[in-house]
Each structure stands twice: as C-alpha cells, then as structure tokens.
C-alpha cells in the first residue's frame, strides 16, 4: 500500500470517528433546545455562554468525574462490556453511509444488510446490561428491549428490502444513485415503516417502554453510573444519527438535493439528517409512551402488513415500468 493510500484510509477513519463524536452531541443539543421550546421553556442557557451550547460538554465532564459503581451481585465482565457492545455498532454503520457522489468511508456491496445486521447487534448491549445488572428493573427493561426488538426487526428489514427491490442493489451508494424524486411517493409507506420501527429499535419515545423512567427507573441503564452511563447516552444519540442517516439515504435520496449534488452532497445529507432528527425529537415531545400490547399490535397489525403491501406495490411497479 502506498503512503497516499494509507493516508487516505486514516483520513476517512478520522472523519468517520469525528462525525461519530460530534453529530450525536449536536443532536443532543438540538433535543435540549427544541424540546425546551416545545414545552415553552428555554432549556440550558449558561454552559458556554451563548444559549448553553456547551451543556453536553459540561455533562460529559461531569460523567467522567463520577464514580464507576458495579453492583456486588452483578456479572462484572458482561456489565462492563455492555456499553461497548451498544455503542460500537453505530460507529461501524456510520462508516458505510455515503455522504457524497463517490464519497463513502467504506463502500460495501451489501451495505444495507450490513447496516441492519450491525444495528441489531447494538440492541444486544441493552439486553446484556439489563441482565448483568442484577436488578429487577434492569432485567424487566432488558426483557422489554428483547420483545420490542423481535417485533420491530421484521418490518425494518421488509421496509429496507422494498427500497432494495426498487433500486436493484444492496449497496447504499447504489441506492442513492438509483433514487428518483418520485420514489418519495412510491416508497412513502416503506419510509414510514422504516422510520417508526427504527425508533422502536432505538427505544426512543413513544417506544421507550424498555427505559420507561417513570415505572422501571431507567430499565437496563438503572445501575450504570459515570462514563459507562455516558457511553449508553452517546449510543442513544448516535443511534438517532444512524437511523436518520439510513432513512435519508434509503428514502430521501441521501446526498442528492435540488441542485449542486457534486459539491453540496454532504450538506444535503446533513440537512436531511437533522431534519429527521428534529422529527425524532418532535415525536418524543408530542406522544405518550405506548403500552406493551399497543407496541406489539402496532408492529404486527400495522407495520408488518404495511411493509408487505409496500413490497407488493414495489414489485408491481417495478415489473410494469421495466
């Protein structure tokens, strides 16, 4: 490998890690402020001076200073591994997201399946945390996570498959290249199913029954303190970034915009990611938590039939137009 080749790889990795560390913080700050204003508050105002922009940095410093507490009865190894298992998959997925024409850290031929597969590993982190904490709330949270994952994995994959059928490729860059604006209408149902099941996999409100801070403390995260807790929090926001990026790439045309695709590609993608992240926050503020029977009902009686219908529609349109 030449020096330029090595530099290229290093640069790509640094950019991905940088985005991985920065974007979740931006989404977190957006959540702080948007949620506050939706509730007629102003949110953090002091840290950093201007409208509390450094609040999450301050939070991070606070988390680092806090003590690591491991419950006596806990399974130490699994307990310590869980945050890494929850966080790292998102980093891997972020590397596969195309940000511009020909601009992607790692271009995988089966990129979509890679993303979905690795995302489902992340949920394993929550289950591990829930079991190893030796806490009944954590165990309940872990079980709820597992039940929710099982229900929402299927519509997620089916909705993704619909786009794959439409584009005729599994590669994320290929899907963006094949995307046409009228797919917004054609794949609308799949987009909704994908986004909603993604929210459920991330356990974001209104699907936050695994965490449910008002009934089971914080589910799998109950026993976590300090940096490990911060890693779980980072995983949650990194998950939002990844879900929004995937939705943008699959259904909204990724780096393609009304004009200047070649130069403005990354900006269009970022704009779409933050627009979707805003929707995630907006939905969180506006909807109450779903009960477990409502969760299962929504998944099996609404989302799965919807995605199957979308698959049929995609197939018919594909055959008719080809």
């Amino acid at each position: 490998m030449t020096v330029a080749g090595v530099l290229d790889v290093v640069l790509r990795l640094v950019l991905v890690v940088g985005a991985f560390l920065l974007l979740p913080l931006l989404v977190g700050q957006l959540e702080h402020k948007a949620m506050a204003h939706m509730q007629s508050r102003v949110g953090p105002m002091y840290a950093g001076g201007f409208h509390g922009w450094a609040q999450l940095v301050a939070d991070g410093v606070k988390f680092v200073q806090k003590e690591h507490v491991v419950p006596t009865a806990a399974d130490r190894t699994v307990f310590s591994l869980a945050p890494a298992v929850a966080l790292l998959p998102y980093l891997l997925v972020l590397a596969a997201v195309p940000v511009g024409p020909g601009l992607v850290a790692v271009d995988l031929p089966a990129g979509l399946f890679f993303a979905l597969a690795v995302l489902s590993v992340s949920v394993l982190g929550s289950i591990m945390a829930g079991w190893s904490s030796a806490n009944k709330y954590a165990l309940l949270g872990g079980m709820r996570t597992a039940a929710q994952l099982l229900a929402y994995e299927l519509p997620l994959v089916l909705a993704g498959s619909s786009v794959v059928m439409a584009a005729g490729t599994l590669s994320l860059s290929g899907i963006v290249l094949a995307w046409r604006p009228w797919w917004l209408v054609w794949q609308a149902a799949a987009a909704v199913v994908f986004f909603v099941s993604g929210l459920a996999e991330l356990a974001r409100p209104p699907f936050d029954m695994p965490l449910a801070d008002s009934e089971i403390v914080l589910g799998p995260l109950t026993e976590y303190t300090g940096l490990r807790f911060a890693l779980f929090m980072l995983a949650e926001y990194a998950g939002i970034v990844v879900l929004c990026a995937l939705t943008a790439v699959l259904f909204l045309g990724g780096w393609r915009g009304p004009f200047g695709d070649a130069s403005l590609g990354p900006i269009w993608l970022l704009a779409k990611i933050f627009l979707l992240a805003f929707v995630v926050i907006w939905v969180r503020v506006s909807t109450p938590r779903l009960r477990s029977d409502q969760l299962q009902r929504l998944a099996w009686l609404v989302l799965v039939p919807m995605s199957l219908g979308q698959l049929a529609l995609t197939g018919v349109v594909k055959v008719v137009t080809s």
């Binding site: 204003h37 007629s40 508050r41 907006w282 503020v285 506006s286 909807t287």
Partner: peptide, 19 residues
C-alpha cells in the same frame, strides 16, 4: 390524535418561552 399533538408542540415552539 398524533397529528393534533404534533401541531400543538410545533405551535408552542413558535411562541416565546415563558421562562
């Protein structure tokens, strides 16, 4: 109901905070 809820929060966001 969901749409109504979304509209309420969006409207609240456009108003000045009461803080």
């Amino acid at each position: 109901g969901i749409l109504t809820g979304l509209a309420v929060t969006l409207r609240a966001m456009t108003r000045r905070a009461v803080t």
